[in-house]
């Protein structure tokens, strides 16, 4: 009685071979149930693999989507404006007559703000990285590092507010003829934003420099400053360069700070106390104007976006090439 119940539990009644009337021997019946389960498991396995694979495919589709959208939407623009005129023109007035589509003033604005940010973040970030990696006691480092990294987590709109309501008035005390919207204030604040990128990545590269190199220099009588600047920094140079390039790429692609604080005057200038317009700032300005799909303004932002995408792509690839180089050296 008891045995038969166990039997039915292991051989569900739905399987005909398991019924008492079946002529098959017991061990074969069992085999069949196992095979079914194995087939079911195999089916589940295949289904899971394909589901996961299609999830992974989404990131590939995203990249393809970005390229296709940018190229296709700016295609109409480049039919009207020759690519060469777009890349070398020095007047950018797409939204009013007489229209002119030379993108260089926007590129100059972007590069000006990004350079100021780059100088600020390099001075602060590299100094911080050297201190944290070469000087700071372990406990100090464990407290300071997360505090600096908070800077990277603050929303960019907050940085824009900070530039406009604190940094610009402060700078106006130094340069009395500074106008409210200027490249300098936007650049400095952006430098503060990307400082943790420089300091964290550079410090990682410095920590990866083998101890033996430092010990050798100390044994020759070098001071800590000499060890840091003549041994550790050169040895970690590719990592430091990588951190700088990646931070710059972030600065080039940043929108809100320049939209809020740098102004909206496309201008060919490298004077930091002037008002400029960055590429991202222009895109934001047009987007706020609610321009209909297919209009000239709508097409322009995709042309500018395509250029922006290519610029950051090149910088990211270069940055990761340098990262790979220092990893190869010491890890």
């Amino acid at each position: 009685m008891r045995d038969s119940r166990v039997e039915t539990a292991s051989n569900p009644p739905s399987m005909p071979a398991g019924s008492p009337a079946s002529p098959l021997p017991r061990f074969l019946v069992h085999e069949d149930a196992l095979a079914r389960r194995r087939r079911l498991r195999h089916f589940e396995e295949t289904l899971v693999v394909w589901t996961l694979r299609s999830a992974a495919l989404i990131s590939v589709i995203t990249t393809v989507g970005i390229v296709v959208v940018l190229v296709q939407q700016s295609f109409g623009f480049f039919l009207q404006v020759p690519l060469w005129d777009f890349l070398t023109g020095t007047t950018w007035t797409p939204l009013f007559d007489p229209q002119s589509f030379g993108v260089l003033p926007l590129v100059a604005g972007t590069l000006l703000v990004a350079s100021i940010a780059g100088i600020t973040s390099l001075a602060l970030g590299l100094g911080a990285a050297i201190y944290l990696s070469e000087y700071a006691p372990d406990r100090t480092r464990r407290i300071l590092k997360p505090v600096i990294e908070i800077l990277a987590g603050i929303p960019t709109v907050v940085y824009g507010y900070f530039a406009l309501s604190f940094v610009t008035p402060l700078l106006q005390m130094v340069f009395p003829d500074l106008i409210i919207f200027n490249a300098l204030s936007a650049g400095i604040v952006m430098g503060l934003m990307i400082m943790p990128m420089v300091s964290t990545l550079s410090e990682d590269a410095m920590v990866a420099v083998p101890r033996s190199l430092r010990d050798a220099a100390y044994a020759l009588g070098a001071t800590r400053f000499e060890v840091a600047t003549k041994v550790v920094v050169p040895a970690a140079l590719s990592g430091i360069v990588a951190s700088f390039i990646l931070a710059l790429s972030r600065a080039v692609g940043e929108t809100m700070i320049v939209a809020i604080a740098a102004g909206s005057t496309p201008r060919m200038t490298f004077n930091p106390i002037e008002s400029v317009q960055a590429m991202t700032g222009f895109i934001a300005q047009v987007a706020l104007g609610d321009s209909p799909q297919g209009s000239v303004a709508y097409q322009t932002i995709f042309a500018v976006g395509l250029l922006l995408f290519l610029m950051t792509l090149v910088m990211n690839i270069a940055g990761r090439w340098f990262v790979a180089r220092y990893r190869q050296q010491y890890e």
């Binding site: 959208v69 080039v252 692609g253 929108t255 991202t280 995408f309």
Partner: peptide, 19 residues
């Protein structure tokens, strides 16, 4: 590809979404 996507400026994603 994933590492590259992490470096694409956020405003570009906005344009992708818009189109």
């Amino acid at each position: 590809n994933i590492a590259n996507l992490a470096g694409v400026p956020s405003i570009i994603y906005g344009m992708l979404g818009l189109a």
